[in-house]
Structures are given as C-alpha cells and as structure tokens.
Simulated scan of single mutants.
Amino acid sequence: KPEGRGVYRRVDGAVYDGEWKAGEREGRGVERYANGNGYNGEWKAGKREGRGVYRWADGAVYDGEFKAGKIEGRGVIRYASGDVYEGEWKAGLFEGHGVYRHADGDVVSGFYKHDADVGEGGRVAMQYAAGDVYEGEYNWLGLYEGRGVMRYANGYVYEGEFKADKMEGRGVYRYADSDVYDGEWKAGKREGRGVYRYPDGDVYDGEWKAGKREGRGVYRWASG
C-alpha cells in the first residue's frame, strides 16, 4: 500500500501530491481537480480533514477547518464578488455564529441554522451594522432566499419572498408613513400585480413595472 510521500493521478483528471498512510491520503497534501478547483491542506483516511484551503475555479477561496471531506468548524470564505463570510460551518454549510461582510460595505452578524426544508441553506437572524434586521431563509451562498422579514432601521418592514438577497416573489412592504404595498416583486422592485394603499386613503390595484404603476389598474380616491 502507498505510504509516505507520492503523486496519484486519477482517471477523472484529479491529481493528488502529498502524504499517504496505509494506502490512504493522510497527512498534508495538495489535490487539483479537473474542473479547476483545488485543495491544499490536511487529510485523514482519504478525506479532507483538519486545516486547509479550498479554491474554486470561479475565484472563491475558503481557509479553515474540514471534517470528513466537508467544510466544518471555523473558517473564512472569500467570494469572487468581494463578499466575505467568517464563522462556523457544518457539513459544508453556514451553521452557528458568523459575520458576513458584503463588498458594498454592509456588515451583518447573526446565527445561522441549516434547515433541510429549504435545501442547502437554512434560517438566520442577522443584525446589520446600520440597525437593519433580517430573519428568515437563506441559501448555501449566504444570500437571502425564500421567505423572510426585513426590518429596516428607518421603520420600514418587508415580509415576503426573497431571491439572491433581493425582494422577489410575493410580499408586503410597510412604510414608516403608513403606506402599504401588497403584491409581486422582481429584483427588489414592485413588478407584476399589486395593491398600494396610501396614507390619505387612496388605493391603487393593478399592474407595476420597475417599481412604478404601469399597465392596467384601478385607482380609487379616498374622496370617492
């Protein structure tokens, strides 16, 4: 059985260069995959375990702990977009306490909890540095996706569906001045069908596009 140091080339194109024990990758080693990804770190019983760095072909880099071949423990991932997550992981997903720093300067901290009902994501309660609070579902990239509630520091509240961190799907947005929009969203803007209730009693029920009334609709004035 392989023991000591050696190079192994697999038929799928992967190449391992590192230490072996009793025929398994164990110790320190580097493995490069055919898809452009690569791992440099510790191994145990043929799997990534211990401390290591995993690089994706798209530019994302994870530096931290692994267990049984998956990201688990504490670690930092830097995405190609410039976003950074630092915190706890379990089975390759955010789980536990963590801080997510967005490339645009937003910093959020909170507690992630994986939930099989929402796929490779989970539920989270996040506090932004500016005072905004998000509670709801997220995907494996840490983006808000699914159902959630965002409470803004200025008093606005959105409750509904999200996709890739933006309001998308069905949701209710309550403004601090008592305006309420209940309807469809796309890429963070009112789009589709929806009802907007103004603080003076006026109501618009109809179509929207890019955040503005557009298409067919009915506008009822409080005056009658």
Rank of each mutant, 00 (worst) to 15 (best):
E3K: 08
G4W: 08
Y8R: 14
V11W: 10
G13R: 13
G13N: 13
W20L: 06
K21Q: 15
G23C: 09
G23P: 10
R25T: 04
R25P: 10
G27K: 06
V30W: 06
E31N: 02
E31I: 11
Y33Q: 07
Y33E: 07
N35F: 03
G36L: 04
N37Q: 08
N37G: 10
G38N: 05
Y39A: 03
Y39D: 07
E42N: 05
A45K: 08
A45I: 00
K47D: 00
E49A: 01
G52N: 09
V53M: 11
V53C: 09
W56E: 13
A57D: 11
D58M: 05
Y62D: 01
Y62T: 00
G64C: 04
E65I: 03
K67C: 02
K70L: 06
E72L: 00
G73L: 00
S81L: 08
S81P: 15
G82F: 14
V84L: 12
E86H: 12
E86G: 13
E88Y: 06
E88K: 07
K90C: 02
A91K: 11
G92K: 00
L93G: 02
H97M: 09
V99D: 04
Y100E: 03
A103D: 15
G105Y: 14
D106F: 09
D106M: 10
S109R: 15
G110K: 09
D115L: 06
D115A: 09
E120L: 11
G121Q: 13
G121W: 12
G122E: 13
R123L: 11
R123W: 14
V124W: 02
Y128Q: 14
Y128E: 14
A130H: 14
V133F: 11
E135F: 07
E135C: 05
E137F: 03
Y138Q: 10
G142Q: 10
L143V: 06
E145P: 09
E145R: 12
G146D: 05
G146M: 01
G148K: 11
G148A: 10
G155V: 13
V157Y: 13
E159P: 09
G160H: 04
G160P: 11
G160K: 07
F162T: 02
F162H: 04
K163T: 08
K163I: 05
D165I: 05
K166D: 13
K166M: 10
G169R: 02
G171K: 10
Y173Q: 12
Y173W: 13
Y173R: 10
Y181H: 06
G183E: 04
G183N: 05
G183F: 02
G183Y: 02
G183D: 03
E184S: 05
A187K: 09
G188A: 06
R190P: 02
G192P: 00
R193V: 00
G194M: 01
V195S: 02
V195W: 01
R197E: 07
Y198C: 11
P199L: 00
D202T: 12
V203I: 14
Y204I: 08
Y204A: 05
D205V: 04
G206S: 10
A210C: 06
R213E: 13
R213Q: 15
R213V: 08
G215N: 09
R216H: 07
Y219P: 09
R220L: 06
A222I: 03
S223M: 01
